[in-house]
Design a protein around this nucleic acid. Sequence first.
RNA 1: GUGACCGUAGCUCAGUCGGCAGAGCGCCGGGAUGUGGCCCCGGAGGUCGCGGGUUCGAGCCCCGUCGGUCACCCCA
Length: 429
Amino acid sequence: MPDPPAAVRAPAGTHDVLWPESVRWEALVARFAGHVERADYGLLETPMFEDVALFRRGIGLASDVVGKEMYEFEDRGGRSLALRPEGTASVVRAFVQHRPALPFKAWYATAAFRYERPQAGRYRQHHQLGVEALGPEDADLDVEVIWLADSFFRSIGLDRFALRINSMGDKVCRPGYLDLLRATLSQRRDGLCDEHRERLDANPLRVLDCKRDACRQATSDVPRFVDHLCGPCAKHFDRVGAGLAALGVPFALDVRLVRGFDYYTRTAFEFSSEALAAAQNGIGGGGRYDELVEQVGGPVTPGIGFGVGVERLLLACDAESAFEVAPPPLDAYVVDTTGGDWARDVTASLRRAGLRADRAFDGRSMRSQIKSADRSGARVALIVGPDEAGAGVVALRPLRVDGEQRQVPVAEVVTAVREGLPTDPPPTR
RNA sequence: GUGACCGUAGCUCAGUCGGCAGAGCGCCGGGAUGUGGCCCCGGAGGUCGCGGGUUCGAGCCCCGUCGGUCACCCCA
């Protein structure tokens, strides 16, 4: 016998989002869409899975995400595919395939899949909101993208978060810096932690963001990339910093910041919540990837983007008591003890008129139907018993405010319900 | 992937020394044969995550496994 509980449980590291929590989720996506669409980013939908080679080439074989965390599978036609572990590669692939006009500014909301050991704020299927902007090399585009993320966080009420930025250089200056860093660290190889003593030669940048004391000490006075950028990269980075300052976006230079994907060039940035005590406090991050389109097989095209994690963002909102979204109340709940014809017809006419309405089913007692009306949160109950049915009226009973129950001719029910509604829509914040 | 802790009703949890599986909330029905909230009464709902072992007897002890949580790692 198979294990029944396991069979009806969501797979490890995945989760369901039920109403009313889903109302908040829905509102968050809508808020993000409105925010980035005002900056002329358009929604891009791409498949949840891609040829596995896209991720290998784009994100990089050396990255943990590609090397050990991808959900890879072969379909019935023998194709090697993978569920997407992040959002950028698919956007770049779609760009190369369709060649939309530049600048190409896209946003997305998608699930992302990584085979990791689950924890709070870390899931095998998580969800990201993000933007990508392809075409301009302009540092002002970096500023726009980072500002979009920062202002989005603030618009949902978050305040306790920090932005760190760094430059990863480009193909002109990175090799030289890597050599310098490798040479410097080689002399202190014995002082590094076990892992990085081995991996130093492959990726010396990784040593910089190692959290172990040994590596922290060995790298404390190591040459900083920002001091060894080539002229254009240095100029670019300076303008990014100046732009953020001009727009009032607080940030800090973090010379140890190294992102997990191999494709980043020049600007890299991360947002972390100070309200989340857990290790999973990164709520968003991104950077420039001026060589990625070319690597995927397209023309040389600079690009930059960010992704934010929906689950972590909501955890941060919880921690700051921000973005508390309640579902809108029903305008009316229909109670019918005469068999259901009235409930069917009155509910339909309310909904046709654009009102939010629900009703009881299964012919339950007056008492239990009214109880359901109360629990539904509806503003009024519309009650039809034998007396009302005989007289062609509906009893309108206020449920949220003091007021007398009154009888309304059936033809005037929609109008009567509307009259009781508040004039202004409730604020979403 | 490594290490540690935790799994009892839909939810939050209690369960003494190994001795008849419980409470609150929620849900359904009733008190009140036509009216919600507060109150009162009743009911449904459990392979004590799953499998094995020890024992006269296991929710409790042991092993395994699955899941969750925390740290590492990685990242959203």
